[in-house]
């Protein structure tokens, strides 16, 4: 009975966290269908393991741990995720005038994030997109806080470098008299 009510409460809380989980999942795999499957699978797994969640305050990192493990298993097992490097190819094939400057900027950031290694991307997206504290990230990914901080530092440093390089490589607009 307690488990039933726990599962019911979990379901309600999960629904409120779903958009955030989806954004994070999408930032990991850059494929909407796969991200949706990952979130749904996380939900089902969380319901199965509802009895393991002892403190409701730990729900977010607990769900993220489940999603992270599922994501890792998927990468290891099926290798079905979009090769994130292909994002750059997609951008090159589009006509620049088809997108607004803002859309282009968003695309550049996403391409840069895609170029981070998996460890750095996970930490960065959990903090910047998910709003996780370092302690929550450490709990979710089962890492020491120090490791979380160093990965985040390296991620942002690399990201800065990649975005700077993109700006330098863009063709400069020239004013036509």
């Amino acid at each position: 009975m307690i488990l039933l009510l726990k599962q019911h409460k979990l379901r309600k809380q999960f629904e409120s966290l779903r958009p955030q989980l989806y954004r994070i999942a999408w930032s990991w795999c850059h494929n909407a269908d796969l991200a949706e499957d990952l979130v749904q699978e996380t939900y089902l797994r969380a319901l199965e393991k509802a009895a393991q969640l002892k403190e409701v305050e730990k729900l977010k990192p607990w769900l993220m741990r489940i999603m992270s493990n599922l994501h890792t298993d998927c990468l290891r097992r099926r290798q079905e995720f979009v090769d994130l490097q292909d994002l750059e190819l997609e951008a090159e094939s589009a006509e620049p005038c088809e997108h607004t400057e803002q859309q282009n900027a968003i695309h550049r950031v996403r391409c840069a994030v895609a170029k981070l290694n998996e460890d750095q991307r996970q930490v960065l997206t959990l903090v910047d997109i998910g709003g996780f504290t370092y302690a929550e990230v450490a709990e979710a990914l089962e890492l020491p806080i120090g490791t979380v901080m160093s990965r985040l530092c390296r991620a942002r440093k690399r990201l800065k470098g990649l975005l700077q390089k993109q700006v330098q490589e863009r063709p400069k607009l020239r004013r036509v008299k």
Partner: peptide, 21 residues
Amino acid sequence: CRLQRVKEMVKTAYEQPPVPQ
């Protein structure tokens, strides 16, 4: 300031991901 800008750019870039078909 640079780090703050990077954080904001990442947050903005993923505010509206595409929805699944």
